[in-house]
Amino acid sequence: MKVLLIIPAYNEEENILKTCNKIKEFSDELDFVVINDGSKDNTLKILEENNLNHINLINNLGIGGAVQTGYKYAYQNNYDIAIQFDGDGQHDVNYVPNICEPILNGQANIVIGTRYLDKKASKFQSTFMRRFGSKVISLFIKICTGKKITDPTSGFRAVDKKIIEEFARDYPTEYPEPESTACMLHKKYKVSEVPVSMNERQGGKSSIRFLKTADYMFKVCLTILIDSTRKH
């Protein structure tokens, strides 16, 4: 069973080495690939100096394009499971076995690491607005696909071989997580959720966040709605 962690990184010079070292400490057999999405800081230098497995995108693509590069790499190298994993220390590598389990049992094609399932397990529940946005998006997915996804925006996901192929071929660029989940539900793939704990992302909050979240929420809902009218 070949498992690959896909770690998109944009200006992550402070966290990327820590994240990779934690993965190495956790297991030697776990492969990872860092996708450097045209970082303007020393991320690339750190990756090269420490000999970390990475792909350096020759231009900035944004999160969707960067993650898809990882899926293409996973597809070309014949991986069985690919896991999306943030480079900023938000995700905990100890949950990797949990998140792979439903795939290994054949119960799911996609497993989402969910913040909201177990309140005690997760110290970080994110802001009110984000939680609210998540609820609205998950209600929308429920209406359009009939399946409840508690944490549709979670960036901690594991997918099996079939989905790696699907994502390598086609992956949304602008609102990748919720849109791709809804799209795979339409295609009748099985999606399940596993509770994980996430650490708080570093960096300050701004008042623009509120509007950004609302804007994101609106566009995601619209995208999912349009997607559901498409033939699959």
Partner: peptide, 17 residues
């Protein structure tokens, strides 16, 4: 064009690696 461009960037970057 954006899509084609994205795919080019991805494939070239993987090839370079």
């Amino acid at each position: 064009e954006n899509k084609k461009n994205k795919e080019l960037i991805q494939e070239i970057s993987i090839l370079k690696k």
